[in-house]
Design a protein around this nucleic acid. Sequence first.
DNA 1: CACCAGCATTGATCGAGATCAACGACCGAT
DNA 2: ATCGGTCGTTGATCTCGATCAATGCTGGTG
Lengths: 237, 237
Amino acid sequence: MDATPTSFDANDLPLFGGLSAATRAELLRNAVIHGVAPGTVLFEQGDMPNFQLVVMSGSAQLFGRSAEGREVLIEVVRAPELVIPAATVTNAPYLMQARVPEQSRFLLIHADAFREAVAANPTLAHQVIGSLAQQFRRMVRQIKNLKLRSATQRVGCYVLALSKQQGTPKRACLPYEKNLIASELGITRESFSRALSGLEQAGLRVKGQIIEIRDVNRLVAACGPDPLIDGETGPEA
Amino acid sequence: MDATPTSFDANDLPLFGGLSAATRAELLRNAVIHGVAPGTVLFEQGDMPNFQLVVMSGSAQLFGRSAEGREVLIEVVRAPELVIPAATVTNAPYLMQARVPEQSRFLLIHADAFREAVAANPTLAHQVIGSLAQQFRRMVRQIKNLKLRSATQRVGCYVLALSKQQGTPKRACLPYEKNLIASELGITRESFSRALSGLEQAGLRVKGQIIEIRDVNRLVAACGPDPLIDGETGPEA
DNA sequence: CACCAGCATTGATCGAGATCAACGACCGAT
DNA sequence: ATCGGTCGTTGATCTCGATCAATGCTGGTG
């Protein structure tokens, strides 16, 4: 079980797997690598995509904003994922804003060049299809999560999913501020806090960013996780 | 403004646009057309995809179900769309159940054959990318809708979007049962009914399946529609 | 060190929306 | 026409989560 690396070189990106050196080089001629400081906004919602961004290290957070200015976290994209290829390939305005929470590196490919390369190159197209499909499924999962579960269930399942994906069955470490996690789960930070406290009856112990799971079975019983919502993260993968 | 047709022939599907007659024929050799009666379940959530389904006429409704058995409408797919290509291309279990609400016709392409054809065929791959991207964006819009707006706002914007897309600025006709629309909007049928009543103060009149919009401006002011959530549906397209 | 700013927790209260229940309208079947 | 079923509406009540407000905690800066 080799973990996915967190940092990538422009030439060993999975995106380019199976591409001939020539086409890869041609694509990279239309691209630059950009180091980005925390807090940077990569693009605003409503902007037209000029580049296809690829996360080489670090991550990007995608936010949705309402007319009244409320802002919620919708997704987090990590290396080596594409940042919303859906916008680039349809050449339609971004539906979300992208912000960078940590020091990160991005590959920027000119949108036109990217679209042409995808059209000309079956294996590249295949990679894009895979990426789009994964991202689509994540969105469907999130919708099911929002529509079918209570706030407490969402919080509990979130913690369970974290602990699995971190490989620590008795512990989960929150990956960013509770504020953001709450908005990702479609609740306020206050409700998030209360839900965590409430789940202490189900064998949970909150210590800052670290959540201890004293009784997994009780937690599972309390919040009813579902692989078709929370993701597989079974033995493999 | 020629409306999109509601019924398609196997040979003039946009999916096959730009394909040579030979490859199209080859694909269709691995496919069958199936007429389907209302109420039929095409597949269950959790099933592995055996076919890539394409809607040739009619529609398919996609439902998510929770462990406790609650069921909500997540999306409706109409001709000439692909039915969840994300499941087929990733060869992963369906996250939703597909049910057919009306007499419909589907093209069923063997999943393996479909994947091979996509891999071998850049223009087909391009069509799949476009379809996936559109569907991804719809899911993002729905998430923003759920997380950023109140129930009443969602209902009002839904009616506005309907009237625009039906080309009747002063009227909207609900496309299926209020029951289902409510679950699509993430609320109960009772709340949906009340929200519609409440919006009568904003110039709305409910007559069964027909909703009259007596004062568009007031409705817009009341529920704050946003092209980045509700879709463009501007002058063209 | 003192200070301040941003984040997190906790309490009190409010309100939107869910739930429970009753009723009416519609529709297909016999 | 009568029946039974589904769907929709309306009312009463409840509850979950939002909101408002106060306080605590932490980390960075002078």
